[in-house]
Amino acid sequence: MALTRQDVEKVALLARLQLEPEELDQLAGQLARVLEYVDQLSQLDTSDVAPLAHAVELTNVFREDEPGQTLPREQALANAPRSDGRFYLVPAVLGE
């Protein structure tokens, strides 16, 4: 499984990561090796097998729709890198 630098760059954007050129090259090689290893799964015929997302079969869990406690604003903002005490602050998204 050959992974080009462009492939890795595309995935990095999807993953919201910014990789340095050396990181890109290193990752391309490492990911290719792991993908080559996991490709052994293609030896198995799974055409009649249903996917299993959870090992313990789960059914829907319902509860009464009752108002509960919510996180107070000051607590919700307590760990924010930037806030004005009411909102989270982000770089300007409009303009430019």
Binding site: V11, L14, L17, L31, S42, V49, A50, L52
Partner: peptide, 25 residues
């Protein structure tokens, strides 16, 4: 990166879905 790749368009069936099936086996 590995997870994003396995879930990305064009590779989902080949990797993620395949792995879920083998998980059942």
């Amino acid at each position: 990166m590995l997870g994003t790749y396995a879930l990305s368009a064009g590779y989902y069936d080949q990797y993620y879905l395949k792995a879920l099936k083998v998980r059942r086996l």
